[in-house]
Design a protein around this nucleic acid. Structure first.
Lengths: 216, 216
DNA sequence: CGGATATTTGACCGATTGGTAAACATTACA
DNA sequence: TGTAATGTTTACCAATCGGTCAAATATCCG
């Protein structure tokens, strides 16, 4: 007879490792495309290629699946902001932050949409992460930006809204991909739009933050 | 006995007018907060203060409700972009477009989230609107921006990505409101963040598009 | 091998889903 | 005022939801 699932974590077998991986991969597919409430366990099971009860053997509830997925993805997702370096050259730091975020929008759109869905619907499952770790990280980086402005390396500006702007402009290409494609038309079906976006956003942010720019 | 609902639209009574209004208002509440698939007719009925069958007397399906809501809101939603004037002063036009979009994010966050939810999940119900009317409008305005750049009134830049940037940065304050609040903290609970955002975004876009700015 | 443990599945559960049927209540209007 | 059309509700439906259970199967290890 199977051990009660509460004791399952004592030792992790190879199969556990593999199946949980499979499941979370499928869950990312489904949750990112339909949101938590719009997703069903059956859909995830089908994508994962296993039966629903089998899925529920590894994650006892839909919520547990979602939480495990969020936990797993969140750390990676904040990596670019964490890499933001106080010692570096401001212009270059901002430029590479934009580039990194755009690359993530291009290469990990599901992760972007997972969070977008969650935040858009009131962040019922990640409120703590937003108010805790995320806020702390942003506070820290905002201080860096503020110091750059103070020392005249970039224009005086609100660092929080600067960060929000970089988030929104870059993630837009993942979250609103359908709309971007629809507006740009068929000819931008490839990844060219990401290079165009990178060029434009660098121009915008570097130009907009140039120290001699008088605050309006 | 009630007339089959197909014939209902021949003449609209006062009650029809009122109830449909009530329902769409409730539907906006629910759909914008939970997305189409995550919403239930019962929830809308409860918010609207009427029974589910009564709701279904006015809109035969959940889809019909959603479609009516989209139709009703879409035109208004594009108003700011439509107001973008080729004859006006470029700097002032961009500035006031940003301001208008920010005001909409502040005053009509539900409308913003309704579209965000829809687009985020692949725009299954509004693909035609995106590829048709929206694309046409954007194409038209992009041409205006391109002309401004050509005549040296603003910097050379990709007009499409400029428009995307204004959309994303402004709508961010509606769609990701929870996250913005979480990061800014309790002290920005009021509407002050919208003024800060307006100031920053004007600085960013006006500075970033200043004609003497060399494209990087 | 063999038995213990871990994994998988089909059948099933109560609750909720979108939607219907028909009886009942109200309104508009001649 | 009467009656036909409009509006509302109760009771209900089949399908799907998240989740359980016990039996069946696969794997591990001595």
């Amino acid at each position: 007879m199977a051990i009660p699932r509460a004791a399952k974590t004592l030792r992790r077998t190879r199969i556990q490792e593999e199946k949980e991986e499979q499941i979370l991969e499928a869950a990312l597919d489904v949750f990112s495309a339909r949101g938590f409430r719009g997703s069903t366990i059956d859909q995830i099971a089908e994508v994962a290629g296993m039966s629903k009860p089998n899925l529920l053997y590894y994650f006892r509830t839909k919520e547990a699946m979602h939480r495990a997925l969020i936990d797993r993805v969140l750390y990676t997702w904040l990596e670019p902001l964490r890499a933001f370096d106080a010692e570096g050259n401001p212009e270059e730091e901002i430029r590479s932050y934009i580039r990194r975020k755009l690359e993530m929008a291009r290469d990990f759109p599901r992760e972007s949409r997972l969070f977008a869905n969650e935040v858009l619907q009131g962040a019922p499952h990640i409120e703590d992460e937003l108010k805790g770790p995320l806020k702390q990280l942003v506070d820290e980086k905002a201080e860096v930006i503020r110091a750059w402005a103070k020392s005249g390396k970039i224009a005086e500006c609100d660092p929080y809204h600067l960060i929000f702007s970089i988030w929104s402009t870059t993630q837009h290409y993942a979250d609103f991909d359908v709309q971007v494609r629809a507006v740009l038309g068929q000819e931008h079906a490839g990844d060219g739009r990401f290079e165009d976006a990178a060029r434009f956003l660098e121009q915008l942010f570097i130009g907009g933050l140039r120290p001699d720019t008088p605050a309006t």
